[in-house]
Amino acid sequence: MRYGLAAGPTKADADALVALPKFMKRMPRVRVVNGTRRLKSDYIYDSAGRQIGITIDAHCSDPPTPGETISAALIWRRKPIRRIDWKASETFADGHVVSGWHEHLWDERFEDRIGRAFEPPAHGWDHLEDMFVYVCQHWNITVLTKQDRPFRLVSNDGDSE
């Protein structure tokens, strides 16, 4: 890992980081600051226990204004190498148009102006914590409990995924 003056991430960097099995040592606490609920990850490690310098930042207003949706970003070197968001209509740089939930990807040419549709869980994600755990799983990040057991998303009727 190089620090400092290196150029921005490439598509290969971003894809490799997302594919890499990772973990964080505990579920971060939700902070309420200036009318916003915010969840920022603690340090994230690769499977060898090395800190890899990526963070997840998810937030929504508290209470949310009508029409507002939760968004989450996976940040590396201050760049959002992955991002999940909802838009009525999003036109990506390659001309691809999506409506609704979508995931921004990353490449060195268009940065995060490329992406694809994204399917949220069938039971939705009404809470910031639900979305956080879900996107962690989506980005290959295991959230450890004190017992070192991975969090599992549990739906309202008690069935685990």
Partner: peptide
């Protein structure tokens, strides 16, 4: 990202927001 505007009525008044 596109600018998106949401609107709703509350207590008889109309409000707009940029959805964050």
């Amino acid at each position: 990202d596109p600018v998106e505007i949401a609107w709703w009525e509350e207590a008889g008044a109309l409000h707009l927001s940029d959805r964050g």
